[in-house]
């Protein structure tokens, strides 16, 4: 077998997932995911509600422990390469009353590179401003984050991810609650990033647009249904498989596992 951390062209593989099973309270929600993502792509993750899209991303980020299998980021464990990933969470996850303004939030993206005991410098501020400019939020730099609309909040988080200057981006539904103009602005930005050689994984809910937005698609429903270039994967059969209800046995067995676990944990 060839070196698993390199792909054919000898580049490092941004994200490799091997036989990953993830369980909440011992009930499996993702079964045996095997993935190898080629670099420099804009990839959409698609699946029905509760199919484990957020879980997949959180597991990659080390926020949810996996019950078996492993994840490698650029050939190393998450801990070692944490600074090379940028993460945009699903929106509700922060306290909007928090006393920080827009620029502060974007600056946080730089903290990972600073290390202990160092404070952000002029350069970092400059980068943060540029990122804000890219998402057209520069005029709002001094606003408290609570005073932004939903779409604006989403853009701030995007700017923060940009400020991380990562090589791999994981975005959980960046388009939810965003108007059409912003959506197309964001997607343009994502394409720009891709052209710079970054890899982007984006959870997306809208099927019609998914076809146009992404180079590759990852169809997920408790298990990996399919992963490949959009034109190959985006067909009726596979979508039917993804959305056409769950594999009943799989979810039943998941419940059985949980029942047994409840008996002992």
């Amino acid at each position: 077998m060839m070196d698993s951390s390199k792909n054919d062209s000898g580049e490092e593989c941004p994200l490799e997932i091997h036989d990953l099973t993830v369980a909440y309270h011992k009930k499996p929600v993702l079964w045996g995911i095997d993935l190898k993502i080629p670099s420099g792509n804009l990839i959409g993750i698609i699946g029905p509600n509760g199919s484990g899209k957020s879980t997949l991303i959180k597991t990659v980020m080390g926020m949810v422990p996996s019950s078996s299998g492993w994840v490698k980021i650029f050939g190393k464990s998450f801990r070692k390469n944490a600074c090379r990933i940028g993460y945009v969470p699903q929106r509700e996850s922060v306290d909007w009353d928090f006393p920080v303004n827009v620029l502060d939030v974007v600056l946080m993206g730089r903290y990972g590179r600073l290390g202990l005991l160092r404070r952000p410098k002029r350069d970092d501020r400059e980068v943060a401003m540029q990122c804000l400019d890219k998402v057209k939020m520069l005029p709002f730099a001094d606003r408290q984050i609570a005073n932004l609309s939903g779409g604006q909040q989403q853009r701030v988080f995007l700017a923060r991810a940009l400020a991380q200057e990562s090589d791999l981006y994981l975005m959980d539904e960046p388009f939810s609650g965003v108007d059409a103009a912003t959506e197309s602005a964001i997607i343009e930005l994502l394409h720009e990033l891709k052209d710079q050689g970054k890899t982007l994984l984006v959870v997306h809910h809208d099927l019609p647009t998914a076809k146009n937005y992404f180079d590759m698609l990852l169809l997920l429903n408790m298990r990996l249904v399919a992963f490949g270039p959009t034109e190959e994967v985006f067909n009726y059969d596979l979508l039917q498989k993804t959305y056409g209800g769950r594999l009943t046995i799989l979810s039943e067995v998941a419940d059985e596992v949980r029942r047994h676990a409840e008996a002992d944990s």
């Binding site: 079964w31 045996g32 298990r223």
Partner: peptide, 11 residues
């Protein structure tokens, strides 16, 4: 579920 053959045993 279309697991790879070498993964099924552990599960």
């Amino acid at each position: 579920v279309h697991y790879a053959a070498d993964h099924v045993h552990d599960d």
